[in-house]
Measured scan of single mutants.
Amino acid sequence: SFNTVDEWLEAIKMGQYKESFANAGFTSFDVVSQMMMEDILRVGVTLAGHQKKILNSIQVMRAQMN
């Protein structure tokens, strides 16, 4: 498990989005775990492969939080 959203993004090789997530207010796992595709688009993730990777990881995160 990760301590910060930045660490999580690095771990899934999506570190290039750290600033975008932070600027959009997605700075805690409570918020990130609620993200939908529209949120991912809003933070500027436009590549389908990256969207899928982030969404898949969020689903895993949700499962671990319950």
Rank of each mutant, 00 (worst) to 15 (best):
S1T: 14
F2H: 09
F2L: 08
F2C: 11
F2T: 07
F2A: 07
N3H: 10
N3S: 12
N3T: 12
N3C: 11
T4L: 06
T4H: 06
T4D: 08
T4V: 06
T4R: 06
T4Q: 05
T4K: 06
T4W: 08
V5T: 04
V5C: 03
V5Y: 03
D6F: 10
D6G: 13
D6C: 06
D6H: 07
D6E: 11
D6I: 05
D6K: 05
D6P: 09
E7L: 08
E7Y: 05
E7F: 05
E7C: 07
E7G: 08
W8G: 00
W8F: 04
L9T: 00
E10P: 01
E10G: 06
E10Y: 06
E10C: 07
E10M: 09
E10F: 06
E10L: 06
A11F: 13
A11N: 10
A11K: 09
A11M: 09
A11Q: 10
A11P: 00
A11S: 15
A11I: 07
I12K: 02
I12S: 03
I12Q: 05
K13A: 15
K13T: 10
K13H: 15
K13E: 15
K13I: 06
K13L: 11
M14Y: 03
M14P: 01
M14F: 05
M14Q: 03
G15T: 06
G15I: 05
Q16A: 09
Y17S: 01
Y17Q: 01
Y17C: 02
Y17E: 00
Y17H: 04
K18V: 07
K18H: 04
K18L: 05
K18T: 07
E19M: 11
E19W: 09
E19L: 10
S20I: 08
S20F: 06
S20P: 08
S20D: 12
S20C: 09
F21Q: 00
F21M: 04
F21R: 00
A22C: 07
A22G: 06
N23A: 13
N23Q: 14
A24M: 08
A24R: 05
G25Y: 04
G25E: 04
G25Q: 05
F26D: 00
F26G: 03
F26H: 03
F26V: 09
F26M: 07
T27F: 06
T27K: 09
T27A: 07
T27S: 08
T27P: 02
T27H: 07
S28Y: 04
S28C: 07
F29Q: 03
F29R: 04
F29S: 02
F29C: 05
D30E: 14
D30S: 10
D30F: 12
D30Q: 12
D30H: 13
V31T: 14
V31M: 13
V31P: 03
V31S: 14
V31G: 08
V32Y: 01
V32I: 12
V32E: 01
V32C: 04
V32L: 06
V32F: 02
S33V: 15
S33T: 12
S33E: 06
S33G: 06
S33Q: 08
S33H: 07
S33W: 09
S33C: 08
S33L: 15
S33P: 04
Q34D: 07
Q34W: 06
Q34P: 03
Q34C: 09
Q34T: 11
Q34H: 11
M37R: 09
M37A: 10
M37E: 10
M37D: 06
E38T: 09
E38D: 13
E38S: 12
E38P: 10
D39G: 03
I40G: 00
I40N: 00
L41A: 10
L41R: 11
L41V: 14
L41E: 13
R42N: 10
R42F: 09
R42S: 10
R42V: 08
R42Q: 09
V43D: 02
V43T: 06
V43A: 15
V43G: 05
V43E: 00
G44R: 03
G44V: 02
V45R: 01
V45M: 02
V45H: 00
V45W: 01
T46W: 06
T46P: 04
T46I: 13
T46Y: 09
L47R: 12
L47W: 05
L47T: 13
A48R: 10
A48F: 07
A48D: 13
A48M: 08
G49T: 15
H50T: 02
H50K: 02
H50R: 02
H50S: 03
H50A: 04
Q51N: 04
Q51H: 04
Q51F: 05
Q51W: 05
K52C: 13
K52G: 06
K52A: 13
K52I: 15
K53H: 15
I54S: 00
I54T: 00
I54C: 02
L55E: 04
L55A: 05
L55S: 05
L55C: 09
L55W: 15
N56R: 13
S57P: 01
S57D: 09
S57E: 15
S57K: 05
S57F: 09
I58D: 01
I58K: 02
I58P: 00
I58L: 09
I58Y: 01
I58W: 02
Q59D: 14
Q59M: 15
Q59N: 13
Q59A: 13
Q59T: 09
V60Q: 15
V60H: 14
V60E: 15
V60R: 11
V60T: 11
V60P: 04
V60G: 10
M61P: 02
M61I: 15
M61A: 05
M61E: 04
R62W: 06
R62A: 12
A63S: 14
A63Y: 07
Q64N: 13
Q64F: 06
Q64G: 10
Q64H: 15
Q64C: 13
N66H: 12
N66F: 02
